[in-house]
Simulated assay, not measured.
Amino acid sequence: MVAVAKAGANKDCELRKILEEVSPKNFEKINKHLSAKDEEIARLRDEIRVMSAHWKIKTKELEQQLEKHRRADQELKKRVLKLEFCLQEARSQTRKLQRMGERRDKALKELRDQLAMKQQCGGGCTNDKQNFWESSGFKIVVSMSMLVLVVFAKR
């Protein structure tokens, strides 16, 4: 036990001697090293503040761009809906015009049939006084009025 205590005491003394020899030299080096690290930490903190401010500004810019794109998207959606409505209206008008054209064609066919009947009947069915409804002037006026109606309907 005494030997262990002496060995421990000798070790303790040796450690103290080493520390006393090394400490004054290392103390300056450690202080310089700590000062350099403190300066580096301060510089890094400043850089972090600058980067943080930079990223906050960038984030705000991106949020503004995002909001601008959202508004543009909404505006485009509204325009698409308007165009779809206009397309439906155009299709509806086209169907109406087709029906009017069919009616006009049917009326023209009837007039042609009547004219053909009249021409067939021309030799044996002559009337000195033609009926007002069968007169060529009336037929021309009716044809022109139908043409005018079709033109106005297309507009």
Score class of each variant (00 low, 15 high):
residue 22 V to H: 05
residue 129 K to G: 04
residue 136 S to N: 10
residue 15 L to T: 06
residue 49 R to V: 06
residue 32 K to A: 11
residue 36 A to H: 03
residue 7 A to Y: 00
residue 104 R to A: 08
residue 129 K to A: 09
residue 35 S to V: 05
residue 60 K to S: 13
residue 32 K to Q: 10
residue 123 G to E: 15
residue 69 H to K: 14
residue 6 K to R: 02
residue 44 L to K: 14
residue 99 R to G: 00
residue 15 L to M: 12
residue 136 S to Y: 05
residue 68 K to I: 12
residue 87 L to N: 08
residue 64 Q to D: 15
residue 100 M to F: 07
residue 4 V to Q: 15
residue 131 N to H: 14
residue 6 K to G: 00
residue 83 L to W: 03
residue 104 R to N: 10
residue 61 E to L: 05
residue 50 V to K: 12
residue 34 L to S: 02
residue 112 R to E: 11
residue 118 K to S: 15
residue 124 G to Y: 12
residue 32 K to P: 00
residue 25 K to H: 04
residue 10 N to E: 13
residue 68 K to L: 08
residue 19 L to P: 00
residue 51 M to A: 13
residue 34 L to A: 05
residue 61 E to C: 02
residue 44 L to G: 01
residue 73 D to N: 07
residue 102 E to A: 08
residue 35 S to L: 12
residue 44 L to C: 10
residue 100 M to C: 03
residue 125 C to T: 11
residue 45 R to G: 01
residue 109 K to M: 06
residue 58 K to E: 15
residue 1 M to C: 01
residue 55 W to F: 15
residue 58 K to C: 07
residue 102 E to Q: 09
residue 16 R to E: 12
residue 35 S to G: 04
residue 87 L to H: 09
residue 62 L to W: 08
residue 48 I to E: 11
residue 78 K to T: 06
residue 27 F to D: 07
residue 120 Q to T: 05
residue 16 R to Y: 06
residue 124 G to F: 09
residue 45 R to Y: 01
residue 127 N to V: 08
residue 129 K to T: 11
residue 68 K to E: 15
residue 43 R to A: 13
residue 66 L to T: 08
residue 17 K to Q: 12
residue 75 E to R: 04
residue 86 C to N: 15
residue 73 D to A: 06
residue 51 M to I: 03
residue 73 D to W: 05
residue 111 L to R: 04
residue 37 K to I: 11
residue 70 R to P: 00
residue 36 A to T: 06
residue 26 N to A: 04
residue 53 A to R: 11
residue 75 E to H: 03
residue 81 L to N: 09
residue 86 C to T: 04
residue 20 E to H: 05
residue 30 I to G: 00
residue 36 A to G: 01
residue 106 K to A: 10
residue 80 V to L: 09
residue 133 W to S: 08
residue 110 E to Q: 10
residue 101 G to E: 15
residue 73 D to M: 03
residue 106 K to C: 03
